[in-house]
């Protein structure tokens, strides 16, 4: 069982994001970390390979600036190797361009399953995984909250508006997971040490051989969204519920 896991490396989310005033692209300088959303896919892939009794977990990542910190975190969790596509020309790529790059990188090694998160934390288009699946000409199942493989068949519980669907599909396939799918492990000290010597192939767009990539969206302007002002804050001394009652009365809810 060989699994390719898409892992996005993103700026630390505790620091507010910025757009470049000139290009309006997301500023992605400095250290990048593993998107939390992708740690679930990494964990799920490690468990599936383990259950299958052998195979490799290959990380696939695209970042404009050669950054590998986030990849190292996922390698420390136990992934075997990584392919990083890094090229300054990829700064500000749209979802489709990103998908083209990821699909080309995935194709370089044999795979049975491609894993991604339902949406990334910083871009959250939620379209990249299925675009990758279409480019690879494989079936996809999004919003997975449970993933199993039995006799070469992928079995997924897929979240729906009213509950969940059991979806089945033959491999190779792509699955995008939610944060409820599995509990990611923390890298152990041993894992962190081992990650330092695991192979990371770094490629530029020319080496990838996708042909020309163009982003066909243009950001015209950026503004701050209207902010909602805060109101009264009271510390509960045992009777704050009264204030809630009065508030609900005032707006005629009760």
């Amino acid at each position: 069982m060989n699994i390719a896991v898409c892992v996005k490396q993103i700026p630390d989310q505790s620091v507010p994001g910025k757009l470049d005033p000139g290009t309006h692209n997301l500023v992605r300088d400095g250290k990048l970390i593993l998107d939390d959303s992708d740690s679930y896919g990494v964990e799920m892939a490690l468990q599936l390979v383990d259950r299958a009794g052998g195979g490799e977990v290959t990380l696939i990542s695209m970042a404009p600036n050669g950054e590998v910190s986030g990849i190292r975190t996922a390698l420390a969790m136990g992934a075997d190797r990584a392919v990083l596509v890094s090229d300054p020309s990829l700064a500000g790529s749209d979802a489709l361009t990103t998908a083209k790059v990821l699909a080309a990188a995935i194709r370089r090694n044999p795979f049975d399953l491609v894993m991604a998160a339902t949406e990334s934390t910083d871009g959250y288009t939620g379209t990249v995984p299925v675009q990758v699946a279409e480019l690879l000409d494989i079936p996809s199942v999004t919003f997975a909250k449970k993933v199993e493989i039995e006799n070469g068949i992928l079995k997924v519980q897929r979240q729906t508006e009213s509950g969940y669907d059991e979806v089945e599909c033959p491999l190779p396939a792509l699955v995008s997971v939610t944060a409820g799918v599995v509990e990611p492990r923390y890298p152990s000290f041993k894992g962190i040490m081992a990650a330092k010597s695991k192979p990371v192939d770094v490629l530029d767009v020319a080496a990838l051989g996708t042909g020309p990539l163009t982003t066909s969206q243009e950001i015209v302007s950026v503004r701050a969204a209207e902010e909602r002002a805060s109101g009264t804050v009271v510390v509960d001394e045992g009777d704050a519920f009264q204030q809630v009652v009065e508030f609900l009365e005032a707006i005629k809810v009760i």
Partner: peptide, 17 residues
């Protein structure tokens, strides 16, 4: 999102989300 993503990659059309 599934529909938009599939269509986008099939026809090489960009998506705004």
């Amino acid at each position: 999102r599934d529909a938009a993503a599939r269509l986008s990659a099939k026809l090489d059309l960009p998506v705004l989300t």
